[in-house]
Simulated assay, not measured.
Amino acid sequence: MRCRAMEKTLGTGRSLMLQGLLYLKKNGLHEAQLHVLTNNKSALSLYESVGFAISKEEQRYRIHL
């Protein structure tokens, strides 16, 4: 999911995230996971504000050929 820059301060992403988590909970899920780049500070802040906590950090390696 991604919000346009002008929507970031309106709480659109937070609202959508909370609605999605509530839907999952009402439908019997007990855990949600997501992946985010560690340099995406606004996303990290959003996810932490709704209760997510870092459980694991991954390293990825690539080479352009």
Rank of each mutant, 00 (worst) to 15 (best):
K41H: 12
K26P: 03
G51D: 05
Q33E: 15
H64W: 04
C3K: 03
R4A: 14
A43C: 11
Q59A: 04
F52I: 00
S49F: 11
R62A: 10
M1D: 00
Y23N: 03
T12R: 03
T12Q: 00
E7L: 10
S15K: 10
Y23H: 13
K25I: 02
G11T: 09
Q59W: 05
F52R: 08
K8N: 07
R4Q: 13
T12Y: 12
L16T: 05
S45R: 06
L37M: 09
L16S: 08
M6Y: 10
R14Y: 01
V50R: 06
T9S: 09
K41E: 15
L18W: 00
R14G: 05
K56C: 04
E58C: 02
A5D: 01
R62G: 10
A43Q: 04
N40W: 04
R60S: 00
K8W: 02
S42W: 04
T12K: 09
A43K: 07
K26D: 14
H30S: 15
R4N: 12
R14M: 02
S42Q: 07
G13N: 03
G51H: 04
K8H: 01
G20E: 01
L22W: 11
L21G: 07
Q59N: 09
I54V: 15
G13F: 04
L37R: 15
L46I: 00
L24G: 13
Y61D: 03
Y61K: 04
Y47M: 04
H35V: 01
S42H: 00
L22H: 13
G28Y: 12
Q59F: 07
Q59L: 14
R14T: 09
V50W: 07
K25H: 12
L21P: 05
H30A: 13
L24I: 09
R14A: 02
R60F: 05
K26T: 09
R4W: 12
K26R: 14
R14W: 04
N27V: 07
A53P: 01
A5M: 09
Q59V: 11
L18S: 12
K26L: 11
S45F: 06
A32W: 07
C3T: 15
K26Q: 15
Q33L: 14
L21R: 09
N27D: 08
H35T: 08
K25N: 02
G28L: 00
A5G: 00
L22A: 14
E57L: 00
K8L: 05
L10A: 12
Q33I: 11
N27A: 13
L44Q: 06
S49Y: 14
A5L: 13
G28K: 13
F52H: 00
R62V: 05
L18N: 08
K25T: 08
L21C: 11
L22R: 13
E57N: 08
L16P: 05
F52Y: 12
A5Y: 08
N40D: 11
V36M: 08
K26F: 00
H35G: 06
G20S: 11
T9F: 02
R4E: 14
